[in-house]
Nucleic acid binder design. Structure first.
Lengths: 163, 163
DNA sequence: TCGTTATTGGGAATGATTATCAGTTTCAGT
DNA sequence: ACTGAAACTGATAATCATTCCCAATAACGA
């Protein structure tokens, strides 16, 4: 319940994998290492990760890349983000802390990140109440940024007042 | 700022469309009418909507269905949900009230809905601070439900303690 | 060390969504 | 009401992310 942002380390994640009957393969390690080395707030698409793996070390198959991402998300090691461009992005899950959240412009697709520890606490509480093992909490605000509101055919606020 | 869940009515939405230079077509009206008639908490995929339109009235093209959904979301009339099955779902946006949020099991894909007006208020405030015209606020908690935690190879909590 | 069983990788397959474009319709301005 | 410019529609083709298939390989408990 500390407020520190702590990432799981590689050793812990390997142990977790084995504990659940999964195997620790060089591919899985390589992928985890890439995410460990990523600066905070950076996220990768499956394609981007695949590309990076090709450069840095072994060539890992695209199918394996997708499979592994899905596995690592289900383990709670990574979080999966849908930032309204049609592809999924992944980043380390700040398991012990509180992950950041997003304010997203639907016109230009730009995303502003912000922290709100209370949102994570709330999610933890609601998950517990419902007997869920928590994996991730995501809070997203969608709208049109100042720059995009001027465009022709751009989104401005609908006539309902208070939105 | 009332707490009432009020939907925009058809006339208002038509006026909004025209105001922004879009045209009011029978197809757009038909789609809005389908969503108006949907019970609260129900959401439709693009395919499902297309199917329903085929039955109820005119046959509307699939391309038009997709195009219109995108437009209506950008207008703030509909909200788009990604409930972690690979397709987008749509429902009326409770613009003046506070839309519901989701607790999602990543294993069985079941979603539990709940209301939290404060989450919507917070989103409104953050959007305003950043000069965004608000369209939607979504709060999602991902985890594994009680039933799915027992499965072989199922997700249990990772070794980090407090998650 | 060995055998069982999960995992990998390449390519084919899928499935949702978007692009194309000719024909049609809306609607602002007469 | 009429008309023309511009937006919209719909059928089909195309795209693109993701998953499936399956034979070959590798992890790891006994």
């Amino acid at each position: 319940m500390s407020n520190v942002k702590a990432r799981l380390d590689l050793t812990t994640m390997q142990a977790d994998l084995r504990r659940r009957g999964y195997r620790v393969t060089p591919q899985r390690e390589a992928i985890l290492r890439v995410f460990e080395g990523l600066p905070e707030g950076t996220h990768l698409s499956a394609e981007a990760l695949h590309e990076r793996l090709r450069e840095n070390e072994h060539g890992i198959g695209l199918a394996t890349t997708y499979r592994t991402l899905r596995l690592l998300v289900s383990m709670g090691f990574l979080r999966e983000l849908n930032l309204s461009d049609g592809q999924r992005h992944y980043e380390m899950n700040e398991a012990q802390g509180s992950p950041h959240h997003h304010l997203i412009c639907v016109a230009c697709n730009r995303a502003i990140e912000f922290d709100r520890a209370d949102l994570h606490e709330l999610g933890r509480a609601i998950a517990a109440e419902n007997g869920f093992a928590l994996l991730d909490v995501q809070y997203k605000i969608y709208g049109t940024c100042a720059a995009c509101q001027g465009q022709p055919h751009a989104q401005t606020k609908p006539s309902g007042d208070s939105i």
